[in-house]
Computed example of a mutant assay.
Amino acid sequence: MHMNSAPHLLTEDRAEYERILDDALRNAHDRPDLAAVGQRLNNEQLRTMALNATALITTAAAAEYEHYTKVREEMRSPAAAASVHNSVLSPAIGEASERGAGFAAVIAVLAPVLAGTAAVIFLLVGYFLKMLRPTPSFAEALVSAGWFFGALTAVAILVAAIGLLLTALRNGATQVPAEESTGELPDEVSRAKEAWRHALLERGLLPFLRAALADPSADPASAEPPRHVSRIPKVGYSGPDYSSPSEGSTAGQRPTFTSPDFTSPDFGGPEHRPE
């Protein structure tokens, strides 16, 4: 389907347009067709002209830009919907996970403390009772319980250390891909963006700059593009014709205005004089 005009360049893409323009001007001397940059028009003048003619230049890559913006919006919408879906449908799961993680952390911290405290109490009381004469019968049981809680303290400390190590490794493994993915676009969006950039450069900016350098009447401060820019391919989009009447007409194509012979029989000659 063809459109009568190019889609409007969104505000978020204007910075990308200016970057492509700046790159083209920066590398102009590497192109033989733009070697005249700086002789009559410098980079700033050409940049001003290209910014004034943004609507015309972007028309040359309108099909690619339309596809790029469509794919980008499609990629954004499912991500937002999935985020809302997960946040609405799985709050109970998240809360249960947080409660489980919090309970495990509490146990990991309190178990060594409680077991160590019990071991110290039982050992002190047991050995104190063993020094008494006669020795109470339950003194040996208290000492045994103290050594049991001492061993339990060592095991709890070991388990807590392993748990902390595994948690650190798991968080580290999930953090790296998240950081890497934040600066990258999905493959389909990246391809669509690159296609738009290429079309904008090759069919829009470069022909415009060549036309500006070839047009001796180009005014850098004018909002009107160079006269020959109307020859930029439109890719199915119709743009305004900036050709002057003198350029649009050629010799041999001018209309002739020879009128038909309106001579009546009454004025045909001497033999037909009126009475």
Rank of each mutant, 00 (worst) to 15 (best):
L51R: 03
G116H: 09
N27Y: 14
G116Y: 05
P226V: 01
T258S: 09
E12D: 14
V120K: 13
P260I: 03
A35V: 02
S77R: 00
I107R: 03
R99W: 01
S144D: 11
A104T: 04
N27P: 15
R72S: 11
L132W: 15
L200T: 08
T174G: 09
G100L: 02
W147P: 04
A141G: 07
A81G: 15
Y17C: 04
Q45H: 09
L9A: 00
N171V: 09
R26K: 11
A160R: 03
I20W: 00
R40A: 11
G126Q: 10
L21C: 11
S190Y: 12
E73D: 03
N52P: 11
A61W: 13
A61C: 14
P134N: 00
A214K: 05
N52A: 06
A35Q: 05
M1P: 11
P112N: 04
G268W: 08
E184L: 13
Y127N: 10
L114M: 15
L51H: 08
A118T: 10
Q39E: 15
V159H: 10
S83T: 08
R14A: 10
V106L: 14
A119F: 02
D30M: 14
S5P: 13
D219A: 08
A141W: 04
H29N: 08
T256E: 08
A218I: 07
I162Q: 00
A62W: 12
S264N: 01
P245N: 11
E275H: 01
L165S: 12
P260S: 02
S97F: 06
A35S: 08
R26T: 03
E184C: 14
Y65Q: 02
S238A: 13
A151L: 06
A141Y: 03
H2K: 13
R26H: 07
A139M: 08
S259A: 15
T69S: 15
V37R: 00
L129H: 07
A35D: 02
S97L: 02
S238I: 14
A154D: 06
S259H: 10
L142E: 14
P78I: 07
S217W: 05
M75R: 15
A63H: 04
D23K: 13
R31I: 01
K70C: 05
A63T: 08
P78A: 13
G116L: 04
S222V: 03
A36H: 14
P91A: 09
R14N: 05
L56W: 04
T117E: 10
L114C: 07
R14M: 05
S243K: 13
G236F: 02
E95D: 05
P274L: 15
G248C: 10
A6W: 07
G172T: 01
M75F: 14
D13E: 09
A199N: 00
F267G: 01
A221H: 02
S246K: 07
V106C: 14
E202V: 04
E73R: 00
P91C: 08
E98K: 13
R191N: 12
G239S: 10
M3I: 03
A60M: 06
R227F: 02
L129C: 14
